[in-house]
Computed example of a mutant assay.
Amino acid sequence: MTQIPIATGLIGFGLAGSAFHAPLIAATPGLRLAGIASSRPETVAAAWPDARIFADPAALIADPAIALVVIATPNTSHATLARSALAAGKHVVIDKPFVADAADGPALIAAAEAAGRVLSVFHNRRWDSDFRTVSALVQGGALGDVVRCEMHWDRFRPAIKQGWREEPGVASGLLADLGPHLVDQALVLFGLPERVCADVVAQRPDAQVDDAFTLTFHYGVRRVTLAASTLTLAPRPRFALHGTHGHFAIHGLDPQEAVLRAGGRIDDPGFGVQEPSLDGVLTLADGHRRTVPSERGDWRLYYAGMAAAIRDGAPPPVAADDALAGLRLIDAARASAREGRTVRL
């Protein structure tokens, strides 16, 4: 028997909603992009003529036909919209970060549990090509015990971009933007650290919010460094791992975002496939050196996981508890940078 697709409503049609969530939802078996709430109805209608257009989020949330609500709005609205959607009996996906203030997280998690609904956070970078490659190497033991891991996300953007991410606010700045992705990847690989030491700074002359950070997580003798910058012309390795058996380094970013932003098709056979020239190199202690073919990146797996969680009771693809743990680590990092000390967790 063919199952009826889960009617999914999307709130927000900015970059995240239009380029990422809408195409991924539409491409996922078991889901149907049923409605979109946006202040730009003409743009929505041109892109998704079969989706119902809602003038405001409240109307979409109130629609009894919508079973899953996806929130892709500015960070400060996440908690309020998620609270309303859960109260209306909807399953909920929230684009990262989970909430602007970590203090709002436990109540949302409790509300989802009480309502028997799935609450998840779109940490899509778990399904990046490079991260899937690194995860396979770490889990397979190719590097032995990893004693140092460096994760970088570098850009060269001397000019300040217009928009709320570059303006002072509760959830603005580079640490709030890229930090949740890097922290989540560190948690997936190594779990919760014991201590965190951080440097968070605004380096561009006209910057009003932080535009560079370095976080160091302590796990016994292991050190995991997460760093991002807006003034790095020659990017550092995306991942560099040093272990008792060898070393692995890989450059470049996963290709999915660039393809989706350019209007590329998800059903293209090459979607998520990294350029071979960007494959990482594994160097072993015995001197053997080889290129490691990159795993295919596939953000569709996140929404396939959501369909399975709603339909079959499978675990959500990203647990809200994991996202909350990441936000608490970022809060600890801010305290470390502000007070000039290592924070024990």
Rank of each mutant, 00 (worst) to 15 (best):
T2N: 06
I4R: 06
I4E: 05
A16C: 09
A16W: 01
S18Y: 00
F20K: 07
L24M: 15
L24P: 05
L24D: 09
L24I: 14
A27Q: 05
P29N: 12
G35V: 04
G35R: 01
I36F: 02
I36M: 04
A37I: 06
S38K: 12
A47C: 06
A51F: 01
F54V: 03
P57Q: 02
A58V: 07
I61E: 01
V70W: 04
T80P: 02
A85M: 05
L86C: 08
L86H: 03
G89N: 01
K90G: 03
H91Q: 09
D101A: 08
D104G: 03
D104Q: 11
D104H: 09
A112G: 00
A114F: 00
A114T: 00
A115R: 04
A115H: 03
L119G: 01
V121I: 08
F122N: 11
F122L: 11
S129R: 08
S129E: 03
D130A: 05
T133N: 00
S135V: 05
S135G: 03
A136D: 09
V138F: 03
L143F: 02
V146Q: 07
V147I: 12
R148C: 08
E150K: 06
R155C: 08
I160M: 14
R165Y: 15
G169M: 10
G169I: 09
G169W: 07
V170W: 11
A171W: 08
S172G: 14
S172Y: 05
L174E: 03
A176F: 14
L178R: 07
V188P: 10
L189M: 15
L189N: 14
L189R: 15
R195F: 11
A198L: 10
V201C: 15
Q203R: 15
G220P: 10
L233M: 15
R236K: 12
R236A: 14
L241H: 07
H245S: 13
G246V: 03
G246E: 03
H247F: 11
H247I: 07
A249S: 12
Q256T: 09
Q256M: 14
L260T: 06
R261A: 10
G263R: 07
G264E: 04
G264P: 00
G264L: 01
P269T: 06
E275I: 06
P276F: 09
D279P: 02
D279C: 08
G280C: 03
T283F: 02
T283V: 10
D286A: 07
D286S: 11
G287W: 07
T291N: 12
R296G: 12
D298S: 09
W299H: 06
A304T: 11
M306T: 14
A308S: 11
G313K: 13
G313M: 07
D322N: 11
R328M: 14
I330G: 01
I330M: 08
I330C: 04
A333S: 10
R334N: 08
G340H: 12
T342P: 05
